[in-house]
Amino acid sequence: MATTLPAPRTVGRRRNIEKYGWIYMRASGVVLVVLIFGHLFINLVAGQGVKQIDFAFIAGKYATPFWQVWDGLMLWLALIHGGNGMRTITNDYVSNPTANRLLKGAILVAVVLLILLGTLVITTFDPCPANAAPGTLPTFCSSIGR
């Protein structure tokens, strides 16, 4: 009886991103827990709580690079995390190849569009727009003459 295989079968498999997708979901999940609860605390609990949220509050946040980075990270990580989750669900439940590709295409478009739009807002946001109604702008706008 042969006890060894002189040439065991080898397999060649196409490389796939599933492993990296799986790692990304775990890593981004951990970071998102901190980012989202930090976001909720700052916006809804700290200071005057939910009453403080108005244009001036948001504008004040986006005037500081810290919150720009925080919200930017949250935007990218959460959208890719959610998009990948939706992709996974589609792969799980949609066996028709055409419908599968259509749905995943729609998810990709939605994710890319929202990321671009969100990034545009975060990076180009003007906290002191001209001709704004008086009293709606953050306090520091008066110091730059608007």
Partner: peptide, 11 residues
Amino acid sequence: DILNDKEGVWR
């Protein structure tokens, strides 16, 4: 390698 497939352990 076999289980690192698209239909492998990551499912």
